[in-house]
Amino acid sequence: MKKNQLCREVKSHLLDIVEQKTGNLPHKDSLLSHIKSCPRCLHLVQEFSKLWNQLESPPKLEPSSSFLNGIIQKIEDYEETKSLSRKVLTNLRPALKVVPAAALFLLGILFGSFLGNAPSEMKKDSSYEFVSEYFNKLEDIPSGSIADAYLYLDTGERRD
């Protein structure tokens, strides 16, 4: 294998070389002996290996001394809020019992108000229009006529 080709092979199998998983590599022996003889490849393997080893060693952090207290404080606040809302709910329970009755009452008012608006709906009704037309025609009866006299007898009032 030519030198350039071996350099390329080293680059492409760099991870296996650094992680020492070269068992299944083709031309394993020629690759490893090439690394020893080629300064460029040796430098690359060394530098990459240094970085990769750092990558394998994780950064570490120790919890502060107040870590546990911070959590306990959060829990206490949470339990306090929870017990407070439970208390409020308990106090509200008698009042909450009235809610269905109040809802029913409101529903009644709404229904009543709907029914109260019915005459305006009735205006659109044809029977209502017929009656109002009838009374309008009575207005047209000339005074002094027999019909007028009849109306006068009926209502006891004299029309002008």
Binding site: P58, L61, E62, P63, F67, I71
Partner: peptide
């Protein structure tokens, strides 16, 4: 508290990472 003591390093480090 015992549970926190047992797992605090594991948790803080995974959060950190």
């Amino acid at each position: 508290e015992e549970l926190v003591q047992r797992y605090k390093r594991m948790v803080i480090n995974v959060c950190f990472r």
